[in-house]
């Protein structure tokens, strides 16, 4: 059973490497939100069932997993600090009022940043993101993407964004999919 499990994990890791390396931003397009949510859950489950949950972090719209009584900084470092804090953009790093305040009443965009840097600080290699919050404007989205691009490039991690925004797919043809790849079959693809 242990050997079988190990082979299964190796096969899954190979699939991830095949699909999401080199480190950077990857986009997967969905026609509707339901299909996106289903795939998000399937991908998250695939990581867990293949024993790779420690390699992955998720950025969820519904369950941000932010502990309200901890400061924003403590939430970012909740799983330890395996990468330098300098990965966090300077503007955020210097905003000590926000960083050392309780993580309550956060805007969806703020929650997005916390989840991203929490995953990176925890040393996770793959970060799975469930699209952008509905009320996030194009400028805010661009700002987040630029910031995430820099952070993942500097940390050697990959951010996999599941999105209904076809514009992102067209803007990144080499690192995007119109149809979500099957993680379990991708090792040999």
């Amino acid at each position: 059973m242990a050997i079988f499990q190990s082979q299964k994990s190796k096969h899954f890791e190979a699939a991830l490497t095949n699909l999401f390396t080199p480190a950077g931003m990857y986009y997967i397009h969905f026609a509707d939100v339901d299909a996106l949510n289903d795939c998000f859950e399937t991908y998250a489950q695939a990581f867990i069932s293949n024993g790779a949950s420690k390699k992955m972090a998720i950025i969820s719209k519904k369950d941000a997993g932010i502990v309200p009584y901890l400061t924003v900084r403590s939430n970012i470092l909740i799983n330890g600090q395996h990468r330098p804090f300098a990965l966090v953009p300077e503007a955020l790093r210097k905003d000590t009022l926000f960083l050392d305040g309780d993580a309550t009443q956060l805007s969806p965009a703020q929650s997005l940043y916390i989840q991203l840097f929490r995953g990176l600080m925890a040393g996770r290699q793959f970060i799975l993101m469930q699209d952008f919050p509905e009320n996030m404007g194009p400028q805010e989205t661009r700002l987040f993407l630029n910031c995430a691009q820099e952070a993942v490039a500097a940390s050697g991690a990959s951010l996999i964004i599941l999105t209904t925004d076809n514009g992102l797919i067209q803007a990144n043809p080499r690192t995007s999919w119109q149809v979500a790849p099957n993680l379990d079959d991708a090792a040999t693809a």
Binding site: S53, A57, A64, G65, V67, P68, I78, N79, R118, A122
Partner: peptide, 12 residues
């Protein structure tokens, strides 16, 4: 409950 979910989601 929410707090427990948060801890589980971050992998505790």
């Amino acid at each position: 409950q929410q707090e427990t979910n948060a801890y589980l989601l971050v992998g505790k």
